[in-house]
Design a protein around this nucleic acid. Structure first.
Length: 522
RNA sequence: GGCCCGUUCGUCUAGUUGGCCUAGGACGCAAGGUUUUCAUCCUUGAAAUCAGGGGUUCGAAUCCCCUACGGGCUACCA
């Protein structure tokens, strides 16, 4: 029927706060599907609930996708031939279709106040009625254009009484939704209620109507969204039918939810705070409460890693390959292979992905963050040697020596602070295990010889091995004592690489200093 | 409560038309090796009787039914 249709998908968040990581994944899957079929990916802002609007949220969403490197073809912030892409700017359009539904008797006016609705629910609950909703079985007891005389409805309307428009659902119908991930889902229309489609109070439709009208007008071919929408999908199918758009109705795919790492339930903002990981792509400060939430970007995650990690939550290519950049994902993504069950977020795996991507980043980039770190207040005064006294090549060399042990760029300082700072103290455990009475004499002998060489890694290593075998030193003790003297602890890259970067003067000074301080109680 | 969706190692999952599954990979974990340090890396290992129970079949993780458990929805929110 619409197999030949151009693939067009949309991501349609509502600007009620920062974008949740689950929303990011939904958008990602939409993007992958669109690009794989040479189609379009649109951003539509669903701001039909004026009460929940949060300033800055829309900008946040756009910035988040810019950071992630997931571009939209059309939509808010980009433009395009199907605008406006903000639902609050499409009132005229919706009004027309509300009228069409009213005229064709598929919808009706309802004048019930919130109090009256509340009273109805209470009444139905107490009477243990089978239906507890506004539907075919109850609508005639309410205040609407179906139950009221025509003249009264007109009077109410003329008087400007606030009203809503509800869809009129016929009972006893089987409605089938064909889902690309779940197959056929059939429900009986008896369980559907006469959902509100339009509110006169703010002259805006609700999600259900706006969504269908926009998807139709924007020629959306596939609706890929979270599983929380599955229950209302039959309503949407009905709406396409009522509007006469069944032939071009998009295909549906309902994605599994992202679950919290521990226990059960879907991932929420609170879990992030509680378990100490971001649930938002970017950091966010609530404009009302001032409450701050961390973001992946600010936590040192690479956008490629976040994309890769998210893609593998609920999907996998079926091969043993796990590292995919965006173009790679576009190539092998298959919507049909998305799993049906919810996926628990796994922090460890997220770290691992970031580690993988960090290895792909340049030494120059890491060197830059090292330079920046050295300039920060907490280390500024304490540097033996400032970052700007190192050449760019030296800084990059340092970065290359430690990068493989990093998961996040900001960890670099903890792995190489000793290039900038001479040890203030020596790890007691190592002193006990490796240092001996004769070590000062051994190291001074070594220094005397090393002082005459060019101090390159290879030269130093050869010289040291030679001296060890000639003098019969304990190799383990010598190497580890040198490390202790230069680093202060049992960590870091190859000892002669450290020496080469430190340089002759600094290396000899640190060794001499250690000889004087270790074992003397100083 | 009602309706809908789901259920393979701790976690993410492979397993597409039932037999090659004594259920594979990755993260994490453990042990060993490399690194005369730490981390990385490499190797090996533990880890799911495929939620449970019934069928169908020569044969089921794969098909059917029931039960249990989990999740979602049930607003003039999206």
């Amino acid at each position: 029927m619409n197999n030949e249709r151009r693939v067009r998908v949309r991501f349609a968040p509502s600007p009620t706060g920062p974008l949740h990581i689950g929303g990011v994944r939904t958008a990602l899957f939409n993007y992958l599907f669109a690009k794989q079929h040479g189609g379009d990916f649109l951003l539509r802002i669903e701001d039909t609930d004026s009460n929940r609007f949060v300033p800055g949220a829309e900008e946040y969403i756009i910035e988040a996708f810019r950071w992630l490197g997931i571009p939209f073809d059309e939509g808010v912030g980009i433009g395009g031939p199907n605008g406006p892409y903000r639902q609050s700017e499409r009132r005229d359009i919706y009004r027309r279709y509300v009228q069409q539904l009213l005229d064709s008797n598929r919808a009706y006016y309802a004048f019930d106040t919130p109090q009256e609705l509340e009273a109805m629910r209470k009444r139905l609950e107490e009477s243990k009625s089978s239906s507890q909703q506004y539907d075919a079985s109850t609508r005639m007891t309410m205040k609407n254009s179906l139950s009221l005389p025509e003249a009264e409805v007109k009077a109410l309307l003329d008087a400007g009484t606030p009203y809503v428009v509800r869809i009129k659902i016929d009972p006893g119908q089987q409605i089938t939704v064909n889902d690309m991930i779940r197959g056929e889902v059939t429900v009986n229309s008896d369980i559907l209620d006469d959902k509100v489609l339009y509110k006169s109070a703010d002259d805006l439709p609700t999600y259900h109507l706006a969504n269908i009208v926009d998807d139709h007008l924007m020629q959306i071919s596939h609706v890929i969204r979270g599983e929380e929408w599955l229950p209302s999908a039959p309503l949407h199918v009905l709406l396409y039918e009522f509007l006469g758009w069944k032939d071009t109705m998009p295909r549906f795919a309902h994605l599994p939810l992202l679950l919290k790492p521990d226990g059960n339930g879907k991932l929420s903002k609170r879990d992030g705070d509680r378990l100490g990981f971001p649930v938002f792509p970017l950091a966010w400060t609530d404009p009302k409460t001032g409450e701050k939430s961390s973001g992946y970007r600010e936590s040192g995650y690479y956008p490629e890693a976040v994309v890769n990690m998210l893609a593998f939550l609920g999907w996998n290519p079926g091969t043993e390959e796990e590292i995919f950049d965006l173009p790679g994902l576009v190539k092998c993504f298959q919507l049909e292979k998305v799993s049906k069950s919810g996926a628990k977020f796994n922090l460890e795996k997220a770290h691992w992905f970031n580690h993988q991507y960090l290895q792909k980043h340049s030494d120059a980039e890491l060197a830059a963050s090292l330079r920046e770190r050295c300039g920060q207040a907490d280390v500024k005064g304490g540097l033996t040697r400032a970052a700007n006294s190192f050449t760019e090549a030296e800084l990059q060399k340092i970065a290359s020596l430690v990068k493989e042990r990093l998961h996040f760029p900001q960890e670099i300082w903890d792995q190489c602070y000793f290039f900038f700072n001479a040890p203030e103290s020596y790890d007691e455990k190592v002193v006990k295990k490796r240092w001996s009475e004769d070590m000062p004499q051994i190291l001074r002998t070594w220094c005397a010889e090393a002082g005459k060489t060019d101090f390159g890694t290879a030269t130093l290593e050869a010289l040291t091995q030679e001296m060890i075998s000639a003098k019969g030193w304990n190799a383990g003790k010598v190497f580890n004592s040198m490390r202790l003297a230069l680093v202060g602890a049992s960590m870091g890259p190859h000892i002669f690489d450290i020496m080469e970067i430190l340089g002759k003067e600094e290396t000899l000074a640190r060794l001499e200093s250690a000889c004087q301080r270790i074992g003397t109680g100083a």
